[in-house]
Design a protein around this nucleic acid. Structure first.
Lengths: 109, 109
DNA sequence: CAGATACTTAGGCATCTGCCTAAGTATCTG
DNA sequence: CAGATACTTAGGCAGATGCCTAAGTATCTG
């Protein structure tokens, strides 16, 4: 997805524990294959593949096929909708800064 | 809920669009009744009441009964699990600060 | 007290979702 | 080419979820 995903798709995608665990594992590794993600996940490769499809549609991960393997990596901008949402509805965060993005620029221009 | 909710409950609770809209509306107002939340929500008061129960269990809102009305307000610490999760798995945010909470203290000690 | 108002909760229902098995596609290896 | 490996996708199913109607509880008002 090069198109910006919505807060709705991001939230819904990360709401499932198994899928979120897959995402966390992808983030924690540079690149990782489906087989590796399946190992220790407690579900079948088919299930993992379905979760990866959801994560990809939500713009949270990207794939890189190489031979018969497919490597997945985290899409850095994928959580932007969540960050934006937090900056609006983050309650006690909102009270301190109008926009997290603005803050980020001040720190790391 | 005085007990700290989990990232799981927070994510799952905010995943539903209707329930998230209810939360957003509570955040945007200081205090608000169930009847007001029902108005323009597109669902019945019963449904709103059920969503409020979920939000309360997730630690996202608090209630204050007054007569036959019940006022709801946002629970500022409710999104803490989400903030913590972001600081761990926020990918390009993580690269910039180890912990959003630490950052917060630096800005607003 | 009787009725109205504000809200919660129970029961039921249709839809959604996550998982499994199994089949299908593509690549590598002997 | 035959078989193995890596992955995706289709079909089906059991459980979860969100909503509605309607009943139940509590408070206010005449």
């Amino acid at each position: 997805m090069t198109q910006m995903a919505t807060i709705d798709s991001v939230m819904r995608t990360l709401a499932d524990p198994t899928r979120r665990a897959v995402f966390e594992r992808i983030v924690s590794s540079d690149e990782i294959t489906v087989a590796e993600l399946t190992r220790g996940s407690g579900v079948t490769q088919g299930a993992i593949s379905q979760h990866l499809k959801s994560l990809k549609l939500a713009g949270l991960v990207a794939e890189r096929p190489e031979g018969r393997k497919v490597f997945y990596r985290a899409e850095p901008e994928g959580l932007a909708p969540l960050v934006d949402w937090m900056s609006h509805y983050g309650v006690f965060w909102r009270e301190r800064f109008a926009n997290l993005r603005t803050l980020l620029k001040e720190i790391d221009p």
